[in-house]
Design a protein around this nucleic acid. Sequence first.
DNA 1: CCTTGTGAAATTATTCACAGCC
DNA 2: GGCTGTGAATAATTTCACAAGG
Lengths: 248, 248
Amino acid sequence: MPERFGRRIPEPTVVRLPVYQRVLLELSSIGVATISSAELADAAGVNAAKVRKDLSHFGTYGTPGTGYDVDYLLGQIQRELGADQERPVVIVGLGHLGHALARSQGFAGGGFRLVGLFDNDEATVGELIGGTKVRHISELAGLCQAEKVAIGIITVPAVAAQEVADQLVAGGVSAILNFAPAVLSVPPAVQVRHVDFSAELQVLAFYQAHPETVATRAPAPAAGRPNGRQYGESLPARSGAGSNGAVS
Amino acid sequence: MPERFGRRIPEPTVVRLPVYQRVLLELSSIGVATISSAELADAAGVNAAKVRKDLSHFGTYGTPGTGYDVDYLLGQIQRELGADQERPVVIVGLGHLGHALARSQGFAGGGFRLVGLFDNDEATVGELIGGTKVRHISELAGLCQAEKVAIGIITVPAVAAQEVADQLVAGGVSAILNFAPAVLSVPPAVQVRHVDFSAELQVLAFYQAHPETVATRAPAPAAGRPNGRQYGESLPARSGAGSNGAVS
DNA sequence: CCTTGTGAAATTATTCACAGCC
DNA sequence: GGCTGTGAATAATTTCACAAGG
């Protein structure tokens, strides 16, 4: 065990935890009992040393020669991710994207509870989305305080995003997930994460325009290749077929 | 100029380019002619040295004592991002999220042209979304080849994502933006970027559950603080008020 | 055998700090 | 005086490689 106290988890590690969690959830549901770092790495699209280093930050979970107990590791990761705590969430902005998120299953299982939907459009206020009524944005800060909202999701146009962030902060919200293409200015105690669909497209376009700058994944595992999933292979068993029906 | 040929651009730099581009676009539209690295950094939420280092990878654009010419720099960045090339895009999966993306303005201005929408649900096939008709997924690979599709956007459920990726690859698509919570396996020549809303929420939850591990942004600029926007300040002039209407 | 956990090494990214230019 | 571009220094992250455990 490295530094059990005053530990500082690298952000890249934190970002990979949800991926490990998802893989483990699937493995658990199909009854897999243990998994090695190499297999987990493979399923998560990273390498084995990274998996081991990541997990080592939280203590010693694995058994040499065997690997990790899937259910135990899953529980540890979920606890680290705070999934055992109730986390009230609001969505501000109920255009197409806000609508889509409000109905998504992304809140399930992570301890997230959608407690409020807000918009400033009178035509949208009052609408019922997935069982929750849309309120006017003037009620935002008040409800955030009353419900002790932990996370605010911003899906308004860029021009309104800072204003909404200010209201969330006024309501005591300390974490914001921002889908608007704008840089938010918030107090240091407030965490912001930014999801920018259009920026991601532009990054893909950059690499298409500059094929010579693409970093090759799978950095040539010498000869033999004792591990590493190749294109086309799959782990446990790709839950084949299934419907192509669109995401909620 | 560093290495004009055989240059390798760090990925973090590439990811910041769209942010710079957006800031410059706004500055240009309000008539700002030049900007210093410190101001651009501030508006983009990074620090000045990073901005200068990032831009230096593409050549020498700035004037000592003055800064960068907004329109010229904007043009350079857009060219780097491949915005001057036509890039046909398809969306696969027209649930709520796919719908929202299909109608969004995220394609505008980046050289992206939406040339196809696909789903396997007979009730959705034939529907007209933003002027484009939804086709059956069986036509996917064929259309990708015919239209030389550059980027495929996956918004189907996780269980179907790999299958769709395979079809995109079969259709010759070399870049994929994946919104499904699944790790895709593709040939090395295909670039994949992953947008995972629910994972981002979990990362925020992690930091709320572990406040002691949060890296403090704005790493104490000693005394004096010669630069750096504080919470509440803003650059050129925050395009105040405006509607809160939700994102498309 | 096989697999973990981890120091050490390598790689990558950020930040500093300053010469040179406007 | 202000600002860029960039080597050098620092910091962060990844990967290696192996001792120790099962």
